[in-house]
């Protein structure tokens, strides 16, 4: 079974972000970058499937600037067999749809794959678009926000459990398919020292748009269908914290309820 995992490199989730004064975006200067957490769940699941079958291949792929190599190497260190980097100045400014179009083209070229994982969303732009859009571009089904997946014994289909409002939806799709990973799927492993050493020797190929048969109008800003006009700091709520302390529980409870009723008027 051939499994692909799409990886996005994003600013470390614990980072405090600064917005550029000109409003053009987040200032990435000096930021640490990591694999977007949901992508790690997808990768872990792919590696587990391969280990269980004791056969097949796991390929990680990502689009973005030079630094993305590091995320792909981390994926290789966790256990992926090879990596594909869509690296070229022409990809710059690609939105979720342009990214999905390019990733789909790379998956076609390097595939066919039986199963493709992506994160349910990237924690930077939060578009939650790429996985489903890849599936559409490849003409195969997808299931979103998967928290549990079970392959059929003959590997012809996969049954997925996804959380929906008020419960869980169970969906079965034929392979090949794209699944997007939700937290709860598994606990991603850490790369071992041996894994990190081995990762250095694993294959990492690069594809330009031309390699994928994509024209200039299909990638980057011209291939995008959304545009960001301005990025600003989030509106700051001015809070003056009222402290309730040194009171017996009953008195403190009474005081809080009074404030919530008479001052905040929320209950």
């Amino acid at each position: 079974m051939k499994i692909a995992v799409c990886i996005k490199q994003v600013p470390d989730t614990s980072a405090t972000l600064k917005v550029k004064p000109d409003g053009s975006g987040v200032d990435t200067e000096g930021l640490e970058f990591v694999i977007s957490p949901y992508d790690e769940y997808g990768l872990e699941e792919a590696l587990k499937t391969k280990e269980k079958m004791d056969a097949g291949e796991v390929v990680v792929l990502g689009l973005g600037p030079e630094r993305v190599t590091k995320a792909l190497r981390s994926g290789l260190a966790m256990g992926a067999d090879r990596a594909i980097h869509l690296a070229d100045a022409a990809y710059e400014g690609s939105d979720a749809l342009a990214t999905a179009r390019a990733l789909a083209a790379a998956l076609k070229k390097a595939g066919p794959f039986d199963l493709i994982w992506a994160g349910k969303e990237a924690v930077d732009d939060g578009m939650s678009t790429v996985g489903a859009a890849i599936a559409e571009f490849l003409g195969i089904p997808h299931v979103s926000e998967v928290k549990k997946a079970e392959l059929a014994a003959d590997h012809s289909s996969v049954t997925c459990w996804s959380e929906v409002e008020g419960g869980t939806a169970v969906v079965e799709v034929k392979l090949p398919a794209v699944l997007t990973a939700q937290k709860g799927l598994n606990e991603p492993r850490y790369a071992s020292l041996k894994g990190i050493m081995m990762a250095k020797k694993k294959e990492l190929v690069r594809f330009t748009p031309a390699d994928l048969g994509l024209g200039a109008e299909q990638v980057g800003k011209s291939g995008s269908r959304t545009e960001v006009l301005k990025v600003e700091p989030p509106p700051k709520k001015q809070t003056v914290t009222k402290l309730i302390k040194d009171l017996e529980p009953e008195a403190a409870a009474k005081e809080l309820l009074r404030l919530l009723r008479d001052e905040a008027k929320v209950i």
Partner: peptide, 14 residues
């Protein structure tokens, strides 16, 4: 919101 609410983006669809 982008970056989990750490920034706010003004956007348009094409």
């Amino acid at each position: 919101f982008v970056n989990s609410g750490k920034a706010l983006a003004t956007v348009k669809a094409r």
